[in-house]
């Protein structure tokens, strides 16, 4: 019944030591984390800041080398992969970063940034590359002349769309979105989220969607994992997590969402204070 997962993460762990290795203070940033991502699915990873969500995302791509565990993508373990193979696997898994300001090199034109992403992964003649860059720019809603823009000439939302285009241009199946909308205005957030959703439907993409913003995650995810202090405390389909949270930490998180109506807020307060009989 269940389709073959695209990404299988098993017992992933990463701890950070103090200044020196052997230091007594060991921070378990990612502690025995396991989850699957199915093809065409958005998997939300939520938790407060510092709980290890971003470290998990980075460890999957080996931007941070994890200590132990396995990450298998289409049946192959990324963590045991030789360099060459890892390089070409990076076509399949891409990343979109939180800060649209520091994630684009200020000295390079948008077209060059996208072209570079292509150049790193494919040996293509310049003409074909330029054509693909123009196509992808068009796909994320930019006019042709944006090719020559510099990042500082664009708004945060526009930059983030370029960030998505940069991930998209190499033709990935999975995109790790690390707080992709947290730095944006709410009005721009939905614009980027809708674009991500449309791209998913159109291209059959999978997302690992990392965020601390529950309402955003609820909006976009099919399934959710809740992380606390490096561990996944609860995971399941979005509706189930939101309607029937099992773990106290999940309940705490849900309660922290500001209510959309005063009456709802009042009801929630009484529900909390009334003792269970």
């Amino acid at each position: 019944m269940t389709p073959q997962p695209l990404l299988e993460v098993r017992n992933l762990s990463k701890s950070f030591h103090g200044r020196r290795s052997g230091d007594a203070k060991v921070m378990k940033a990612v502690d025995d984390v396991s989850f699957d991502i199915l093809p065409g699915e958005t998997f939300g990873l939520v938790g407060e800041s510092g709980c290890g969500k971003s470290t998990t995302g980075r460890a999957l791509l080996r931007l941070i080398e994890p200590d132990s565990g396995s990450v298998s993508f289409q049946g192959q373990d990324l963590l045991k992969m030789p360099r060459k193979q890892l390089h070409s696997t990076r076509r399949q898994i891409q990343m979109v970063f939180q800060d649209p300001y520091s994630s684009l090199n200020p000295h390079r034109r948008v077209g060059v940034i996208l072209d570079e992403a292509l150049k790193i992964q494919y040996r293509l003649p310049r003409k074909q590359r330029t054509e693909r860059v123009h196509r992808i720019l068009d796909r994320v809603g930019f006019a042709e002349d944006y090719y020559y823009r510099f990042p500082h000439e664009m708004s945060g939302g526009q930059r983030q769309r370029i960030g998505v285009a940069r991930a998209l241009i190499v033709g990935p199946q999975l995109i790790i979105c690390d707080e992709p909308v947290s730095a944006l205005d709410v009005s721009i957030q939905s614009q980027v989220l809708n674009m991500l959703h449309d791209l998913q439907v159109e291209l059959g993409l999978s997302y690992l969607f990392i965020s601390h913003d529950l309402s955003v995650v609820r909006h976009i995810s099919h399934r959710i994992a809740v992380m606390q202090k490096g561990r996944i405390v609860e995971q399941g389909p979005t509706d189930e997590i939101f309607s029937n949270p099992q773990h106290p930490y999940t309940r705490q998180l849900l309660d922290a969402i500001p209510a959309s109506h005063p009456r709802l807020a009042r009801e929630r307060r009484t529900a909390l204070t009334t003792p269970v009989s």
Binding site: Q94, M95, S102, S103, E116, I120, R166
Partner: peptide, 17 residues
Amino acid sequence: EQTYIESLRAQGASAYR
């Protein structure tokens, strides 16, 4: 330490690049 350098690593860019 800028994110665009991390992004390049995620894309698989060589140290030279």
